[in-house]
Design a protein around this nucleic acid. Structure first.
Lengths: 341, 341
DNA sequence: ATTTCGGATGGGAACGTTCCCATCCTAGTG
DNA sequence: CACTAGGATGGGAACGTTCCCATCCGAAAT
């Protein structure tokens, strides 16, 4: 029996001994200062480390140097494909920088947001990408003051010193309205989840209101939770049965809304195109339903990468000198049958 | 100016001093041993901690006690809704246990799998949920030997001492075949990505082959990368044009395959139902396409939770005494129009 | 009154790193 | 040849915890 009962992980000291070197040298070897070591010593250390199966303990590392090599990300809803897509961008950018990503999903629950924020802080993350539903302003404020670089996804936060990365919501809604108008739709129904707080939902909604005004279109907004299709379906039924009969279209504020609206339209037996449908956020299946659903695609990967970029930028550029930046991306329209009459 | 230039985070010692207590007591307070402290002392510590904005440093914690409170998860493809759903289950279970989740996406790249595995190990995760595309057997072996509890999602691994949680693939395929046969389809086309390695794809494919044999059905399998629909579309075109004209159906091995197959069918102008379509994995949009796509739903949340349960179980039950368990879940059929003739 | 016990508290040694300072050596310089 | 510069290496003190041992005290038992 050669297997020890509990093969503790090798430490830097053991490697040092095995290699006939000092722990300092081993530390240098693994800490990216190899070139300071003689070829020969490098060889001995590599050999010993390999033999002992040594991997540096990040916990200890993080403790001493304050470098956790960790980026935290707060995701409001991990099952939202948009969030995941952005997360994918964040993750890739992190990897390129040699960082790891600690992801916390909050299921849109403010209490969890608070908890997870505290948690991420306790791991001494070197940066934080926040996509929150609620308004953990106080907590974020605190973290920002502790010098943790912060990036807010898609969401401005009055007081907090943080970068903001997201879609240019106003232009996106304009794009949508122009397209719908161009296709001859005259009455619009805007479908959104409740736009509480400073979320992009608010920006989109208010631009919608401005937009129909400016374009001389008719429009109403349905802003209710989408949990049960009930309420939405009723609203849409009313919309379909409205008097006058000018061509009408639905504009959905995000992927969830598009999904719910599509379900409702189908349940009501409406024909896509005849009744227009345009969704913000491109999804796998939009091309497959009926004649295809027209969408406004966000550059999700780019948004994610930009977030990490901001983080790094801020960390290097001496924390608090530069004012917070705002990076806005443009959506692109993917026209399909659902807005062709 | 009251703001210090760099407000370092408070340490346990500072809290102790401020509260007129010892660091041991503060440690106890935050380490879940509050009841050992007198009411009065608890109050003082709480007050001091609040005032100083103290949060325990998990890095230091993890270092001393070996308790990182971290669970690692390796995800083969984070943009796959199935993986995300499982992840959501894992995440919830973790939270209930007071654990955090360190997620690594590998984009199906074996090299990244290796890297990320090493990374997770270096954070001294207390457990590992692995959903890998490749075969990082050696690495996993190593981790298992170091006593890190391991759960493999959906994937058996010969030598490694690890729990396995996943779908009962054989029964799932049986269920699918029974349904298709019952609906009168006689010739089947199985659509899958290449079933390399020990993935569930293999189990499903081989059961498919056994199954058509046993049921006296005709069937072929298309196992190619789905990147470009090209090849799949050709295969499907041939399938639709096959001589004899017995009713035929497609069986898709997973969500990606279902998506690709649906695209191809639509491009070819096939009518769903007339040509059957059944997909493993339930997706948001399956009810919306054409007459609805019949699917086999996996209990994703349950799978995720079970994974964490196994982890905890193993950690408590003195690591290596009990043999690895295998937990298999049953899929449930959701019949829709795509398998109604 | 003495002993014993147990609950509340505190001191200090780890944990595995990094990093500031040596120290040692070799080669270049005057 | 004495002196120095600088590259290679190593020793040891942090980093912020946890946890093993005290220590201290009042109450119960003798």
């Amino acid at each position: 029996m050669t297997t020890p009962s509990l093969p503790r992980r090798a430490t830097i000291l053991e490697v040092a001994r095995a290699a006939g070197a000092s722990k300092t040298s081993v530390s240098r070897y693994f800490g990216g200062e190899r070139e300071r070591l003689s070829r020969e010593l490098q060889g001995r250390i590599a050999e010993a480390a390999r033999r002992l199966g040594y991997h540096p303990n990040q916990m200890a590392r993080g403790l001493k140097g304050g470098r956790s090599r960790l980026i935290g990300m707060l995701v409001a809803d991990i099952r939202n494909p948009f969030s995941v897509a952005v997360m994918h961008g964040v993750e890739q950018a992190c990897r390129e920088q040699g960082l790891s990503l600690l992801v916390c999903n909050t299921d849109n629950d403010p209490a969890q947001e608070r908890d997870h924020l505290a948690l991420l802080a306790s791991y001494r993350v070197e940066g934080l990408v926040v996509n929150a539903a609620g308004s953990p302003d106080r907590e974020l404020q605190g973290l920002a003051e502790q010098g943790i670089p912060l990036v807010l996804l898609d969401r401005e936060l009055g007081e907090v010193e943080a970068e903001v990365v997201g879609l240019d919501n106003a232009r996106a809604v304009d794009l949508a309205l122009d397209h719908l108008q161009g296709q001859g739709y005259r009455e619009l129904l805007y479908v959104s989840e409740p736009p509480e707080q400073a979320s992009p939902r608010q920006a989109r909604l208010s631009r919608f209101r401005q937009g129909i005004e400016a374009r001389d279109l008719a429009g109403t907004a349905h802003c209710q939770p989408l949990d049960d299709g009930e309420s939405l379906q009723r609203t849409i039924a009313d919309f379909l049965a409205r008097p006058g009969g000018a061509p009408g279209a639905l504009l959905c504020a995000n992927g969830n809304a598009t999904l719910a609206a599509t379900r409702a339209l189908q349940a009501l037996g409406a024909r896509l195109g005849e009744t227009g449908l345009l969704g913000i956020d491109e999804l796998d299946w939009c091309a497959l339903v009926g004649p295809g659903i027209t969408t406004l695609a966000q550059p999700t990967e780019a948004i994610g990468r930009a977030a990490v970029e901001c983080l790094m930028h801020r960390r290097e550029a001496g924390d608090r000198t530069t004012p917070a930046r705002r990076v806005h991306f443009q959506a692109s329209l993917i026209p399909r049958g659902s807005t062709r009459r």
